[in-house]
């Protein structure tokens, strides 16, 4: 399976990773090779096979509705790139 330049540009936007023009050919080749590898899946007969999301056939445990966390804003914001008045600061969305 080949992956087109347009596909690469599309997934790069979805994944929010800037891809420079000169990187696209290399990605085309590498991702194409990976997808070739993955295309072996097509050979498997999976008729009536239930998809497997988890290794163990376990069910979810639920937590009681009790507050267990305390305010640790200072510790968390000490490692943040930009904060002010307790808020995380990010650049504006430009539409």
């Amino acid at each position: 399976m080949t992956i087109s330049r347009e596909d690469i540009e599309k997934v790069a936007v979805l994944a929010r990773i800037r891809v420079e023009e000169e990187q696209v050919s290399a990605l085309e080749k590498d991702l194409g090779n990976i997808l070739d590898l993955v295309d072996q899946l097509g050979a498997a007969d999976t008729e009536s096979v239930e998809p497997m999301a988890h290794p163990l056939n376990a069910v979810q445990r639920l937590r009681p509705d009790e507050v267990t966390e305390t305010n640790q804003r200072e510790a968390f914001q000490a490692i943040a790139p930009a904060t002010e008045n307790g808020l995380y600061l990010v650049p504006r969305v430009i539409e």
Binding site: R16, F76, P81, P91, I94
Partner: peptide, 19 residues
């Protein structure tokens, strides 16, 4: 880049910061 870890220099807008 919003809450911890690396953030690029001088992002011009949100999308630029992300990408």
């Amino acid at each position: 880049g919003a809450r911890y870890g690396y953030r690029c220099e001088d992002p011009k807008d949100l999308l630029d910061m992300y990408t």
